[in-house]
Amino acid sequence: MDLPLSPILLFAGCGLGALGVALSMPRKSISPYIFGAILAGLAFGLVMLGLGLKNPESVPNIHFYIFSLIALASALRVITHPRPVYAALYFVMTILASSGLYLILSAEFMTFALIIVYAGAILITYLFVIMLATEAPSEVQSENLTEYDRVSREPIAATVAGFILLGGLTTLFAVGLPNLKPDDKLAAGDRQLAFMSKKVEPVLKQAGLLKDGEKVVASRVETTAYGSPKDGDTSLDAIKIKSADGKERLLPRAEWPANLKLSNTEGVAFSLINNHPGAIEIAGVILLMAMLGAVVLARKKVEMDEAALSAAIARQRAGGRGDDELGVDGPFARPGTGEGGVA
């Protein structure tokens, strides 16, 4: 069987990575996370070097190595950093690095959508909630860190499970990928240009392919679900031009000017609107339901649990925090009357 990488190397990489991740988990004693991170990075480097040496003709661009190393290293830091705020900031780093990966895969629109929506909006929401929902520090806890942030739960078992999954997934990819062929029928190409008369017209005029009084007519592009024309239908590879006296002629694909190209954003837009219009509706419903749910949850009156309440009162008596923090407006005001929760 022709595998892109020897399985021994793959499993060795997975084992080394598991060791590194398990070492860098937060624990009660000093955790050797720098050592663990170096081990995990070595494991990634080992697998990538093995892949590159076995198939030197198809190594990706060097930017791939830079971005994926940044993404994986900061992802490791997200799950090992004891402070939630820092973990969220490292996650922003992961997002930026994976948007770099999107860029080298020539998905420019999604790159910037990812930065704006993910790093800009979703992560800020996370940071807000981290700052809202932070436990009042007491003197027992060191450096403001709570016990559940400093100690991880079952690090060894979780790491073993995760890396067995990684080994299985990558082995299956390695076995299955050689059978995968890029399908020419799936390729979107730039046939949709025949539909975009306003974009095409100035380019044709500039190239001198459009005579006086002639106009480009948008022709309906009949596509399959994958965005390509139906089998054997080559008539779509032509731009329809209408002259002033109503005569129509076709400009075949071979005569199109070289600078007439479909941009990535236009391609995504055609795929979204032409091929997946129902999915947009579903996405809208999901967002609406999430908004309704969040509003309902946020308006709910919550009473504090009895154990948590007595702990908070004990903390207040011990003087862990100033009195202004637990004043009348605080969440523990007037226990038992039911008006303690924030409405």
Binding site: M25, F44, I79
Partner: peptide, 22 residues
């Protein structure tokens, strides 16, 4: 395969984080 490996590794790190963090 390079990209899929990175993606799978990121997925597994996320899974491990979900299991271990409290």
């Amino acid at each position: 395969y390079h990209y899929l490996f990175t993606s799978a590794a990121l997925f597994c790190i996320g899974l491990i984080g979900f299991l271990t963090r409290r």
